[in-house]
Computed example of a mutant assay.
Amino acid sequence: MDHDAVLALYDRQMRRDAPADGPGARVERVGGVVRQTAGDHGWNGVLWSGLDATTADAAITEQVRHFASRGCEFEWKLYGHDRPFDLADRLLAAGLVPEPAETLLVAPTDGVAAESAHGRADGRRDGPELPTGVEFHRVTDAAGVDLLARVHEEAFGTDSSRLRAQLLAQLTAGPDGLVAVVAMAGDVPVSSSRLELPPGRRDFAGLWGGGTVPRWRGRGLYRASVAHRARIAAERGYRYLQVDAMPSSRPILERLGFTALSTTTPYVHRPGAPGPH
């Protein structure tokens, strides 16, 4: 995989020319910034910027004002290769707060799907084996969203009300761009994950939200969910899988053939936070 070529393709398709990620969301280019405005329940933030030392501060101030006027929290998604080199310091000065950095990992979809089909002692080529009694279930309605949200809250320790509203809106608008999956141990949800399939002639499918409740970790559920989603993405014709990986999932993904393209750090501005100074 040509690192520079794939990174340039990712920047163009998934950032500079990004589609809106849900109903009611609007993506627009304003000067040197591409942003999404989605209201209370969607993701609001900056997807891409082409700035330099002379334009960065004014662009940051404009985004703070834009989202503050709507009472929205927003995220500036800063990548390790973005410019100017001190953009992180400028965001801090404008009142944005960094959250933990993640690694942007990418892999050819066919390669992950093929790799995931190996490793069964009995020779079957149906991917990593789920623990006995566990099955994947596709989320298609509000009841499934509630199960996924339960896993998300227990796995990550965060409130899932915004995620629940966003997924319901996406499923209502049309299921083609989203595959959400819950792993069920009988009638108990133990793991969940999502696959986002951007519309149009795009090459990247996104793996999001892979989480397992604490008592079920270490049994291969995350790897199995990657394999499951890789096969779906391959069937849909997406060339690459991309993940914003946390340190806990990065080693698993790298063993499946994922390569680091960059880093990404969310810089978040909340309503009422200090403005630029």
Rank of each mutant, 00 (worst) to 15 (best):
S116I: 10
D86R: 05
H81G: 00
L92K: 02
P100D: 07
P98F: 04
G119T: 09
E102K: 14
R83P: 08
H81M: 00
A101G: 14
P84V: 05
Y79P: 03
T109M: 09
G95A: 02
V112D: 10
F85T: 02
A117G: 12
V106T: 10
V97R: 15
D89C: 06
G95Q: 11
A107F: 05
V106W: 13
A94E: 06
L92Q: 11
A117R: 15
D110M: 09
T109G: 04
T109Y: 11
D86T: 02
L78G: 07
D82C: 01
E102G: 01
G111K: 12
S116E: 05
A117S: 15
W76L: 10
L105N: 12
E99Q: 14
L91P: 14
L96T: 04
Y79A: 05
W76R: 01
E102P: 02
P84C: 08
H118F: 11
L87Y: 04
L87E: 02
G80E: 01
D86C: 04
Y79H: 15
Y79Q: 03
E102A: 09
A94P: 04
E99D: 11
V112L: 07
T103E: 03
L87H: 00
E115A: 15
D89E: 14
L92V: 12
D86I: 02
G111R: 15
G111T: 12
K77L: 14
D82K: 01
L78I: 10
P100I: 13
L91V: 08
A113D: 09
F85Y: 04
L92D: 13
G119K: 14
A88W: 00
D110R: 15
A114C: 07
P108K: 11
G111E: 14
W76H: 09
G95E: 10
S116D: 03
D110Y: 08
G111P: 01
H118C: 09
A93L: 15
A101S: 14
Y79S: 03
G80K: 05
V112W: 09
R83Q: 15
T103P: 06
A113W: 07
A117P: 05
H81E: 07
P108H: 12
S116Q: 09
L96P: 09
E99A: 12
H118N: 10
G95Y: 11
G80L: 03
V112R: 13
A114N: 00
H81L: 08
P98E: 02
G80V: 01
A88M: 00
T103N: 01
W76N: 10
L87Q: 03
A88S: 11
K77D: 04
L105T: 08
G119N: 13
A94D: 01
A101D: 08
H118A: 10
P84I: 00
D86P: 00
Y79C: 01
P108L: 01
G119Y: 14
A117E: 12
P98K: 05
P98V: 06
P100C: 12
W76M: 00
E99T: 06
D82H: 03
L104C: 03
P108M: 08
A88T: 02
F85I: 11
G95H: 09
T109Q: 05
E102M: 15
R90F: 11
